Amino acid sequence: MSLSSIVVQKKDGSEFENQYFNNSVYEYDFVSKLEDTKAVSIKQGVTLDSLPEEYKNVVSVVGTNNTSKNVLFRSGVFTLISGKNINSKDRNSILIHLDLAKKNHLKVGGTICLNSHTFTIKGIFEGKKHETYKGLSSDLSENTVFLDYHFLDTKMVHKMTVFSKKESRLKQV
């Protein structure tokens, strides 16, 4: 498995002016601990007996500035069924899976806490991606959440998708 990334920023840390592209979507992936909420669990063939307690109730987090342009939503693997997508203006917003919402009696407008930070649930989605279960609750689609990129205290991205109406502009990337 290889994790690769590229960071493009000015020396002063500010963002580049975006005169050639209609918009860019940033994504940063990590795992986070749920507080006062239980992750969805299913019986799996893989178990980790030596797994520390703090890793038994974790979710996979995608920090993004636009969930509607995320490949899982664009391809139809995930479908927003309630509420709204996260966009670049959102702060402290989160999308959660329907099964996670049902298990914890959560609704759009409610809150969920990750690593001591409270997020407002902006939307609920459903669907199931291809999974490779390695023994963590965060491996499951039901335990995937999307939160607004601006909450993250980073300028790094794991994935950047660039959109343009002119193909010649994309070639410049």
Rank of each mutant, 00 (worst) to 15 (best):
K129F: 15
D153F: 07
S32D: 10
N87A: 07
G123M: 01
V77I: 14
S168Y: 07
N115F: 08
K122L: 04
G109M: 02
D139P: 02
E17D: 14
R74Y: 03
N65V: 00
Y149N: 01
N104V: 00
E53G: 07
K43W: 13
H130C: 08
K84H: 00
M160P: 00
S5W: 14
R91S: 15
I94E: 06
N85S: 15
S137N: 09
L147P: 02
V162P: 02
Y20W: 05
D99C: 00
N70G: 03
K43Y: 11
R169N: 15
F21D: 11
F146I: 12
T120A: 03
V61I: 12
N92D: 08
T79P: 02
S93Q: 08
D36K: 11
G13I: 07
S164E: 01
V58Q: 15
S14G: 05
T161K: 10
K165H: 13
H97R: 00
T64V: 10
G83N: 10
P52S: 04
H105V: 13
T37E: 01
V62A: 14
Y26C: 10
K166F: 14
V62T: 15
N70T: 15
L147K: 03
D90F: 03
N65S: 04
V40K: 02
E131Q: 09
K103E: 06
N87R: 04
L152E: 12
S88D: 12
Y20I: 07
H97F: 05
G45S: 13
A101H: 00
S68D: 14
S68C: 10
K129C: 07
T64R: 03
K56R: 14
E54D: 14
Y55P: 05
V61S: 06
G123K: 01
T118M: 09
N70L: 10
D29C: 14
F30K: 12
V145N: 07
Y55K: 08
V59W: 09
N57W: 09
T132C: 08
K129I: 14
D12G: 04
S137I: 01
E142V: 03
I86K: 01
D90I: 05
S14L: 03
T111R: 08
S75P: 06
L3P: 00
E126L: 07
K159P: 05
N70W: 04
G76H: 02
P52E: 00
F16M: 09
A101C: 05
R74S: 08
T64C: 08
D29Y: 15
V62P: 01
L48I: 15
